[in-house]
């Protein structure tokens, strides 16, 4: 199952990574160079097997309730952009940009 250029591009979009067309060759070759070693798994009969627990019996469920987040510094100390307690980001899409909206600043 060789990875094609278009699949690299598609996967990069899914992963929210910007990959230039110039790098697609290199990345496809790298991924194929790794995935060829995974072919050995396809030859194994694994019918009836499921994923194991990393350490049997250790995982416990906690109560379905929230508590305070133990942050010792305000969000302003580490957020790239914040206003009135909200993280601010660029507009969702470029077609929404208008002069009026720009004047209003980032949307919370």
């Amino acid at each position: 199952m060789a990875v094609s250029h278009s699949e690299v591009k598609h996967v990069a979009e899914l992963a929210r990574l910007t990959v230039s067309d110039a790098r697609l060759d290199e990345l496809a070759a790298e991924l194929n160079g790794i995935l060829v070693h995974m072919d050995v798994l396809a030859r194994l009969d694994t019918s009836g097997l499921s994923a194991p627990s990393p350490a049997p019996g250790c995982t416990h469920l906690r109560s379905d309730s929230s508590g305070p987040i133990p942050l010792m510094a305000p969000r302003e100390a580490f957020a790239p952009s914040i206003r009135e307690g909200f993280f601010t980001v660029p507009r969702l899409a470029t077609h929404e940009v208008t002069e009026a909206a720009d004047a209003a600043g980032p949307t919370p």
Binding site: A15, R16, T18, A79, P80, F87, V89, P90, T94
Partner: peptide, 24 residues
């Protein structure tokens, strides 16, 4: 993704572009 902590690439035109540019 450049929203809550860590670096953010400035100058991106949209949210989606900011995600990609920041992560790349």
């Amino acid at each position: 993704d450049g929203v809550r902590y860590g670096m953010r690439r400035s100058g991106s035109a949209s949210l989606r572009e900011m995600f990609g540019d920041t992560r790349s």
